[in-house]
Design a protein around this nucleic acid. Sequence first.
DNA 1: AATATTTTGGAACAAACGTTCTGAATAGTA
DNA 2: TACTATTCAGAACGTTTGTTCCAAAATATT
Lengths: 191, 191
Amino acid sequence: MARRKEFDPEERMEKARDLFWEKGYNATSMEDLVQTMGLNRGSIYDTYGDKHSLYLQCLGNYAAEKLREHKEAALGTSPIEKVENMILSVVEATVNTGKCCMAVNSTFELATVDQSVHSIINNNWKDIVNFFEQLLTDAKKVGEISQDKDPRLLAEFIAANFTGLWQTYILSRDKKQVEKLAQFLIDMIKH
Amino acid sequence: MARRKEFDPEERMEKARDLFWEKGYNATSMEDLVQTMGLNRGSIYDTYGDKHSLYLQCLGNYAAEKLREHKEAALGTSPIEKVENMILSVVEATVNTGKCCMAVNSTFELATVDQSVHSIINNNWKDIVNFFEQLLTDAKKVGEISQDKDPRLLAEFIAANFTGLWQTYILSRDKKQVEKLAQFLIDMIKH
DNA sequence: AATATTTTGGAACAAACGTTCTGAATAGTA
DNA sequence: TACTATTCAGAACGTTTGTTCCAAAATATT
């Protein structure tokens, strides 16, 4: 049999993911990746395929982790409280790390021209919207939101607003500003 | 004296702008620009400077034109009607051209790492928010929106929602979907 | 211990990148 | 008409790009 890998593919991929996340796809060179991942070029190609393939894996990894985090953030005794905490946790993560959503970055850089990227992000987006929809349906049943609201539409509205929050944060770099907008969104949902 | 330029610098810059708009900054090569602008490399460098400088001029041009368009779209007999028409015109322009906002694309591709880009977009963003704020202040005075609303915050919320609409459009490519979200936003403002 | 299979590090590749340079063409001024 | 400043077209520049290749090192099985 053969020699074993000296590194953990998952762990190194996350290093690549963080670099793509920070710089974007096109601005990240293979040389950057070699340095950041601490791997040889050959090892990268053997393990992950070419740059584009590696990127897709990073994006998929990110999307899966993000969905998990969203669900973990859905804490609370009532559905609407869960929704609220999800929104607050997105804001908190953004201002704490200073980073926005990799999938959203990717949407605007690549999704219009790259079908594979579009597919990964779109599926992730749908998963998140579906999760919100479920919670909002519950909230409606319990009477926490008004009966004339459409849970699906409201879920899509919330998800779309995340992107707005990130845009606002990139431009203002103002924690308070983003928190105010998020709170406004939450108030809007409740009434 | 010397030979005169055989082309209109403004007109050719708009060709470059449209290409950057479509492909993004990093994915657009100088060769692409030479082809699309129909100019010699030397002429481009002489007239606009290097690639980055050309991009900044394109982005500035875009921002100015976009602000003008926003103001032109503010038709109506009452302030809130103007706001409504501005929102609807953004949706209409998006689904008609199939293109999103260049400044938003640029925010997510470059604004986090490029101070000049950040500055151009941020100023444009502020101009748009200020314009909304003025209209909403008027609307509040006239009693078209409730007295407990903060015009500034509402203006920022609307602007942020544009980004959400564009993200939604890129992923869904669904005209109806975006229109529904926009209408939801409008209803929210009014109530 | 020998074998077989895979990883590793780094050299090497052609192509594409952004940019500069050169000489010929052009046209307003003297 | 001669002069001069500028544009034009395209070759050429040195880097950087993404990718491939190769010999040496490594290890689980035979």
